[in-house]
Computed example of a mutant assay.
Amino acid sequence: METLIGGSQNISVLIKMGAKTNALIQDGQWWRLITPMFLHIGIFHIFMNGFTLLYVGQVLEPMIGHWRFFIIYLLSGIMGNLASFAFGAGNVVSAGASTSLFGMFAAFLALALIYRENRFLTELGKSFLGLIVINLIMDLTMTGIDIWGHVGGAVGGLLLGYALGLPGIKRPQMIFRILAVVLAVVISYYMYTKGMVVYG
């Protein structure tokens, strides 16, 4: 659809379709915290994110179930966009699923922390922690990358992964699940209110 109405690298098309721009969110277009994770800028961008989603999703989704997977994808993506809104450059137009992808990377880390005795999950957690660190280091050396979106997505995925755990297993304890959700809500609220401050 982006291509049909003018091109996925056309700034006006991206804005029309719902890309994240701080000024428009501050004007009340809150849905721009959700829609950017379904938009991409260029064929290479959507190919790389789609390939990563396939690679990670075919391991994570069967493990935690469809609904947990969807919740982590959606809410960690929103937390990533909130972090970009709060701490990123205000005049940048951003889009892409990488906020959600970082959330899924961090969900593996959460599972490794919860189920430390499971060697498979522990090794997965180590691998994805390394992937997060390497990608964040690369973000610092590249232009046009929204590092705050990636950081926020990872924080969201870690907290949500801890809150949801694995289906059918009563770990972690409910109090810790609730605390993880509360912390995610508090961090999200802080980032939203910080982003809503208009700097003169």
Rank of each mutant, 00 (worst) to 15 (best):
H40E: 10
H40W: 10
I41Q: 01
I41N: 02
I43D: 11
F44V: 12
F44Y: 11
H45N: 13
F47A: 15
F51T: 13
T52H: 07
T52K: 08
T52S: 14
L53F: 11
L54G: 13
Y55C: 15
V59W: 15
L60W: 08
E61T: 13
E61F: 13
E61P: 03
P62S: 09
M63L: 15
M63G: 05
G65H: 12
W67D: 15
F69C: 09
F69R: 05
F70A: 15
I71V: 15
I72N: 01
Y73R: 06
L74Q: 01
L75W: 09
L75R: 08
S76Q: 05
G77E: 04
I78K: 01
M79Y: 07
M79F: 14
M79T: 07
M79R: 06
G80R: 07
G80E: 07
N81G: 09
L82S: 09
L82H: 11
L82D: 08
A83Y: 14
S84R: 07
F85L: 08
F85Y: 07
A86K: 02
G88W: 01
G90R: 02
V92D: 03
V93K: 00
V93M: 03
V93Q: 01
V93G: 03
S94G: 13
S94M: 06
S94N: 09
S94H: 01
S94E: 03
G96W: 02
G96R: 01
A97T: 05
A97H: 00
A97Y: 00
A97M: 10
S98V: 03
S98D: 05
S98M: 06
S100D: 03
L101R: 00
L101G: 00
F102K: 00
A107I: 13
F108D: 01
F108Y: 12
L111S: 07
A112N: 06
A112Q: 04
L113Y: 12
I114K: 03
Y115C: 07
N118Q: 14
N118Y: 06
R119T: 08
F120Y: 14
F120A: 14
F120L: 14
L121K: 01
T122H: 08
T122L: 14
L124N: 02
L124A: 09
G125Y: 02
G125S: 10
K126M: 14
K126E: 12
S127M: 09
S127T: 13
S127G: 08
S127W: 04
L129W: 10
G130K: 04
L131T: 11
I132W: 01
I134M: 11
I134S: 10
I134A: 12
N135F: 07
I137N: 06
M138D: 12
D139C: 15
T141H: 12
T141W: 10
T143E: 10
I145N: 06
D146K: 02
I147D: 01
G149I: 01
H150S: 09
H150N: 10
V151D: 00
